[in-house]
Design a protein around this nucleic acid. Structure first.
Lengths: 142, 142
DNA sequence: CTCTTTTGTTATCAAATGATAATTAAAGGA
DNA sequence: TCCTTTAATTATCATTTGATAACAAAAGAG
């Protein structure tokens, strides 16, 4: 198997994933929240509990800027910071109930788009899709 | 097949894709180019030729802002705009040679990371991965 | 007990980005 | 032809974001 060819398929694929997920969240209007803040919430939602430096690291944001945005999110009551009792330097961050509710709305909207998208797919193909998702996550996107 | 369960796997999967592709471009230092401009270049790279409104649409950016960023990219000689001869309102946009060279560098870096990532995967598994990428792109991320 | 490293914060400033209004030019329909 | 729509541009302004320096507190190493 030519790994260059594989890589090309990889690039095309990841581009498609970005494009489709972008489309799925397009119409969702997030009031009083900036794009970067939304991205952070999304990341917390799938990774909570999480520390500030992990967010900083993963989002390519400096610690000071991450800290500032998290303060804003806390002020908006969308997430909560707790000092980790094992290492009191660390902050354990999760969505607040309000933040969770907001993200649930977003996910609900995405889900309806997703269901639409796979509406005409047969039961057997669904199983293949599920298998493919798991395989790729295990072997490539781990 | 429970579509809620499917959706959950979908969300986890897309989150992983975002995270890994983020990581892969993390160390690449793009001089004299902003994050938004990079994203635009990346999009042009996989979709060229493309029009301004398509970029605007897909990137959730207003036309004026898209126009401004493309002007900056053109000034930096990273992309080229040509009026479409079939519809002279439209602009056909592609990477310049310089822009293409820049993105090639980025892709080269990503490729080495990708190769590393699949280094210990067997030939048969590679074929399965290739098949999975194609299946998902055809059935879900189209 | 010092010294260093890790984790996070506050403050500040320039630059990038988002939003909006007004304008131009081409295309298309009646 | 006139009117409307589409594609793109220019200009402007407030807000967000990125970068940096200086600092504090906890953990860890010697």
């Amino acid at each position: 198997m030519d790994k260059n060819v594989m890589f090309h398929k990889f690039v095309t694929f990841t581009a498609a994933v970005h494009q489709i997920t972008n489309e799925m969240t397009k119409e969702v209007k997030l009031e009083g929240i900036t794009p970067v803040q939304y991205k952070i919430l999304e990341y917390i939602a799938v990774s909570q509990p999480i520390t500030l430096s992990e967010i900083s690291d993963c989002m390519h944001m400096s610690m000071p800027n991450t800290s500032r945005e998290l303060r804003k999110l806390s002020e908006k009551k969308l997430c909560e910071k707790m000092t980790d009792e094992d290492d009191r330097r660390k902050q354990s961050i999760r969505l607040s109930e309000e933040g969770q509710a907001m993200m649930n709305e977003v996910f609900k909207h995405m889900e309806s788009q997703f269901i639409e998208r796979i509406a005409q797919v047969s039961e057997q193909e669904l199983q293949e899709i599920e298998h493919a998702l798991e395989l790729l996550q295990r072997k490539v996107f781990y």
